[in-house]
Each structure stands twice: as C-alpha cells, then as structure tokens.
Amino acid sequence: MKHAPLLAIIALALAGCGRGSEVTFADAAITLPEDSLDLPQAPGRDAVLANCTACHSPSMMLQQPKLARDKWAGIVTKMREVYKAPVDEAAVPEILDYLVAVQAQAEEPAAREGA
C-alpha cells in the first residue's frame, strides 16, 4: 500500500475551507481522438455506416452480448423513436442482417481462442 497520498486527506472527509477566491477558470478545449469506424466486412455494412455511426462509435454495437434479431430490432426502434436517430426505415432490415452476421462471425475467433 502506498500511504503517502492518505496523509493529506485523512482529516478532510468533509472540511469547510472558507470563502477563498483563488479559484480561476480558464477557457478549455480538447481535441478528441479520431474514430476510425472499424467495422468488419459483412453484408449491410454500408447501411450501418450510413445510418448508425454518425451518432456513435461502432464499438457500441460490436461490444454488445450476442442478441437475437428481434432484440436488435428493438434496439434500432429505440434509436429511432426515443433518440430520434435519423435511421432510414428502409435500411433497417440490412442493418439487422449486418448486426446478426457480425456477431456470428465474432464467435469463430472466440471459439479458436478457447481451444
């Protein structure tokens, strides 16, 4: 255990420290890393790129546990109806094809890893 940082804080679980005014706020800006849109090849990939990844990184889809097509459909519906994502209704079947196919693909290397 490293105790050094503790010395400073032991007594100050909740300490009033007066009305100091030395706090200053500077303008702040950061540049976030590029999102490389790593999406595995599978049918429907273009539909996903056109309809999903404007709002969030692909990892949000790719990291989900394996889901049945109807569960994915529920998520896409939530994106459209609750979060007002501009997903083209005509593209939804392709998006679902892609999500199901990519999760099936992902199981193969996982199985090899476990071997």
Binding site: T31, L32, P33, E34, H56, S57, S59, P65, A106
Partner: peptide, 27 residues
C-alpha cells in the same frame, strides 16, 4: 465478460487521460 465479446483496447489515448480501457470513442 461472460460469453464475450470481452476484449477491449487501451487506445486511442484521450487528452488528459493515461491508459484507459476504451469502451467507446464517441461519445
């Protein structure tokens, strides 16, 4: 994570952050 997918990258690095498990870049 049970049943996976379970692997996560430690990059890219974010400004002001050290090595972090990157669950999602955006948001």
């Amino acid at each position: 994570l049970p049943g996976g997918p379970s692997l996560r990258p430690l990059d890219p690095q974010f400004p002001g952050k050290g090595e972090m498990i990157v669950q999602r870049i955006r948001a």
